[in-house]
Write a protein that binds this DNA or RNA. Structure first.
Lengths: 340, 340
DNA sequence: CTGTTAGCGCATTCAG
DNA sequence: CTGAATGCGCTAACAG
């Protein structure tokens, strides 16, 4: 592989001039620049990232921590997030190092920062009290959370408005005549799961709807947990007429169990989810859900992280984005009951 | 951040000794080693990856090229592959750089190699004739394909036995009495899609089953394309009694369309998919499919890539793995027809 | 067993 | 506008 000196020799200049051309320094005679350019082409010269990183003290790389495998974030959904993050990062010329979400035994993002393998860290769907967050915050490592929140100093985040999404569905179901609404929560060690549950409780109470603990079916984001939640539903003396699931996977699992039990959706029961994964349009019945502004989440996170990496002393930024309802077949008016 | 010299000063040795300790060189007096270790702890020293990479000419990083967004590989499924790749790579102390699959306008993995940002490249679900493959092969960049194949020199790959999976289903359906079987293919610019289609044609022909082009419904891996394939099915004068989809997403889309048209699965029609994504267990009816040996694919690929990076001159390795059928509700014996 | 010398490829600083 | 010197942090190859 050719180095700057090789190029310099071929172009009859010092390697310093080559460096200038490569970095677009304007103080180079056009004619010389031209000559250097040709030499670069001829030798297929490419700047060595390691040398550059060593000198500049910047790796031009960020670490992206994926959610834990056990479905902290809906699967098909976070791969899209990766895509959008990459798109947003490309113009800045940053690369992405991925790190599995497993915090036990996995790669430590703080270590990557200390080793200068990454200039900043992005975390998808962080857990509450994840020890890595504190470590990152303490190190002063530029960090941004996607789909999660944190009060730690120096930790920026971008999240959707969890309360607004849940409120929307509670209100809508209420208007459709539903009075008894159940809620399937996600893994409560994830901030979003808790926020959604809290919003559900608050909103049902405000509207004067029943909101006892028997209407809360704990789940863990997985389809299986949604499926199992149906047993709780089924065991209830007086059944709810609607169920809000904290994500589509659980809603789909629940739908499956309902179908097996002969409960007809949406005739006997309305079901809604959150995320709008691709499959949500292809279940039977198709799923009413909430589409997340993925591109905005990604670009917002990239912007926040870039700012933090440019200026380590700036305060953390926080951004809350709205989601968009997608109305499909799984949700309808309450049937054959006097509205009380 | 502390450097080796800082540690050396604190431990009263030369930085060379520190380097030896860090790299586990045995030729260091235990007592000295101990002292250095303590200094390392105290200063929280971490080796600088850029400096190490510059000196060793190895970045200890590989690039992982994701499949294109338009579902070249089933979504929830490739995130698991990432996970397994990471697990397999961790003991070797390699990091993973991710690159989006979009070949137009995306990051070029060859460039990452030339810049020495990556020592090797792993590609998930490569397209046929992807120009990047040739570039990689020409550069002599250690490369391994997952879920794809290539004859280019120096390109290793690990793939499942596509023909065996399709053969299994054709045979099984045949034994269940089905005679007229249709096939939904994936995006035919992906090698796997073509192999599966070819296997279908060959096997039906061998068994003396009808295999006209009207029984081939072209898809593109997405649920939507599976959904649309149903229109072709529906338009047929004489309808098949079974459908094999090249992946679960398309099978699920097809299932949805069938449900909407009142075609009962598996009573009127059997449907099978490939991949065993999580959702396959939660559709109604649940989906009979083929589970891929993800962990083996990942570990095989890592092994092949590691070998190629160690010794650039070694021949490419090829590995074909078998899949495991998962029998669920969507597939049953043919109904109300004399077996001919 | 430990230290010295040299250089990986690049960019900043200062001289011309 | 261009070049020379210097150092980023580390390790390989030699000394001692």
């Amino acid at each position: 592989m050719a180095s700057q000196s090789d190029v310099a020799r071929l172009a009859n200049v010092s390697f310093m001039t080559v460096s200038r051309v490569v970095n677009g320094d304007p103080r180079v005679k056009p004619e010389t620049r031209e000559r250097v350019q040709r030499a670069i082409e001829e030798l297929r010269y490419r700047p060595n990232a390691a040398a550059r990183a060593l000198n500049r003290q910047r790796s031009m790389t960020i670490a992206l921590v994926l959610p834990r495998m056990d479905a902290a974030l809906s699967e098909p959904y976070f791969s899209q997030l990766i895509y959008h993050v990459e798109r947003a990062l490309m113009p800045l010329d940053y690369s992405i190092l991925i790190v599995s979400g497993e915090n036990r035994g996995g790669v430590d993002p703080t270590l990557l920062f200390d080793q200068k393998k990454a200039d900043g860290v992005m975390i998808l769907g962080a857990q509450i009290g994840d020890p890595r967050l504190e470590a990152l915050s303490a190190r002063g490592c530029p960090t941004v959370l996607l789909h999660a929140r944190s009060e730690l100093p120096g930790i920026s985040w971008v999240d959707v408005d969890n309360a607004a999404m849940v409120d929307y569905f509670v209100d809508r179901l209420h208007r459709l005549g539903h009075r008894r609404i159940a809620f399937i929560s996600g893994d409560l060690s994830v901030p979003n799961a808790r926020q959604r549950l809290d919003a559900f409780r608050a909103r049902t109470e405000t509207l004067g709807l029943p909101c006892g603990e028997d209407l809360h079916f704990p789940g863990d984001w997985s389809s299986g947990s949604g499926f199992r939640a149906f047993a709780r539903f089924h065991a209830l003396e007086v059944r709810p007429s609607a169920v809000i699931a904290s994500n589509d996977h659980m809603a789909i699992g629940f739908l499956k169990a309902a179908a097996e039990s002969g409960v007809s959706v949406p005739d006997d029961l309305s079901v809604v989810g959150i995320d709008d994964i691709e499959m949500a349009a292809y279940t039977t019945p198709s799923l009413t859900t909430m589409r997340q502004p993925l591109r905005l989440i990604a670009s917002g996170a990239v912007e926040a992280l870039a700012a933090a990496m440019d200026d380590g002393s700036r305060p953390a930024s926080r951004l809350v984005l709205g989601a968009e309802p997608v109305l499909r077949e799984s949700c309808g008016p309450i049937s054959s009951v006097s509205f009380s």
